[in-house]
Simulated assay, not measured.
Amino acid sequence: MRSRTILIVDDEPRSREGMKKILGVWAAGQYEILTASNAMAAMQILEEIPVELIITDIRMPEISGLALVSQLREKKIQRQPSVILISGHAQFEYAQQAIHLSVMDYLLKPASREKLIASVESALKAGEEREHIVFMRKMTDPQLMAIRDEEAALSDPVRQAMHYVETHIEEAVSLQEVAAHVHLNGSYFSALFKEQCQITFSEYVARRKLQKAKELLLKTNLPIAEIASRTGYQAVKYFNKLFKEYEGMSPGRYRSMRDGTEAHIQ
């Protein structure tokens, strides 16, 4: 998993090192505190290391803090860091631009230790909440959610079939097997399931298994072959093909999204 990093960008050495010292004591090793003396140096760090939070001065030579944040937002990276702007001047146009760039806070220099720490804690918490929302969206299958929302209106055989799939997620599940379990003819069960769920039973099984696979890819470091096995696919090649068909990418690339990077895997 990636390290947790806070980046301070300020061309004034005294201010930069002062904030680093305060946050170093506060972080107690939970965050690495990096510094940059200008926007160019900051961009170089940001291209190499995922950063949770940027604290940047607005007025710096050549490239301002606002321009730095604007360039960062344009990059549309998977995980955008939270941003706190600092300035020695309370200018309204700065605050306006900060709002436009979704900046978490705007502090005036010299910020007290208490204000700096409170602002950092608030920005990090907001960033974690944003990451959680993104994380949940990655795992969610809209069609499965739609079926779940209407579960109360489904017939008992269909609900029983869904429960059977849930409890046999690690096995290969066939339509005939489930139809027999709910005491229905295979053809009748197939038609009933499609009518009530708007997708075929085989598609439901594939989507539910891939949903489980996505959870394992994002929450664990299990090998892809093991994840395939745990979702009832003994042939990894077939699992990869099915995953790409539904998700538009390989399991390896999907997992790399967890860290905000695209790895050349699989």
Rank of each mutant, 00 (worst) to 15 (best):
A123P: 02
S102D: 10
E17W: 06
S82P: 01
V51G: 07
D259A: 13
I117C: 03
K194I: 00
E12H: 11
R4T: 08
Q30P: 00
P157D: 08
L218S: 02
R113I: 08
I147H: 01
Y164D: 08
Y204N: 01
A118H: 12
Q143V: 07
V134I: 10
A225L: 07
D156F: 12
A263V: 10
V236R: 14
P142W: 05
Y246S: 01
E17H: 07
P110A: 12
A36T: 02
V134R: 11
A111E: 01
P81H: 05
K212N: 10
G65L: 00
S250W: 08
V165R: 08
I49K: 11
M104E: 07
S70N: 11
A39L: 12
E151K: 09
R4H: 09
P81D: 05
Q143N: 11
F135P: 02
E215M: 04
P142N: 08
S256V: 06
E245H: 13
T167N: 15
Y238P: 00
E245L: 14
E177R: 10
Y106D: 06
I169L: 14
V103Q: 02
G18N: 15
Y254R: 09
E121D: 06
K109R: 14
A225N: 07
V158E: 03
Y204M: 00
Q160M: 14
I84D: 09
Y106N: 07
K214G: 06
A180S: 10
E171S: 15
T220D: 05
A98I: 06
Q266N: 15
Y94S: 05
N38R: 15
Q44H: 00
A67C: 09
I55C: 07
L107S: 07
Y238W: 00
V103W: 03
R137N: 15
P157V: 12
R207W: 06
Y238E: 06
K241C: 04
A206T: 09
F243D: 01
E12Q: 10
Q96K: 15
E226L: 11
R137W: 13
A146L: 06
H100V: 11
E47W: 06
L66K: 04
Q196F: 03
L184C: 04
Y246D: 01
Q80K: 05
A206Q: 09
Q97C: 05
S82D: 02
N221A: 01
M139C: 12
E195C: 11
S15K: 11
V69A: 11
M139A: 14
A90W: 03
R207K: 12
D57T: 02
M257N: 09
A90P: 03
F92Y: 14
G88W: 14
T140K: 15
E195F: 09
L66D: 02
S190C: 07
D10Q: 12
E114N: 13
G232Y: 06
E170Y: 09
I58L: 07
I45R: 14
A28N: 14
G252W: 00
G18Y: 10
K214M: 12
L175Q: 13
P61V: 13
L34D: 00
L66Y: 08
S70I: 00
I84H: 08
K125E: 10
A39P: 05
L23Q: 04
Y233L: 06
M104G: 06
D259W: 13
L46S: 06
I45Q: 13
L124T: 04
G252M: 03
Y254I: 10
L34P: 00
L23A: 08
M40R: 14
R159V: 02
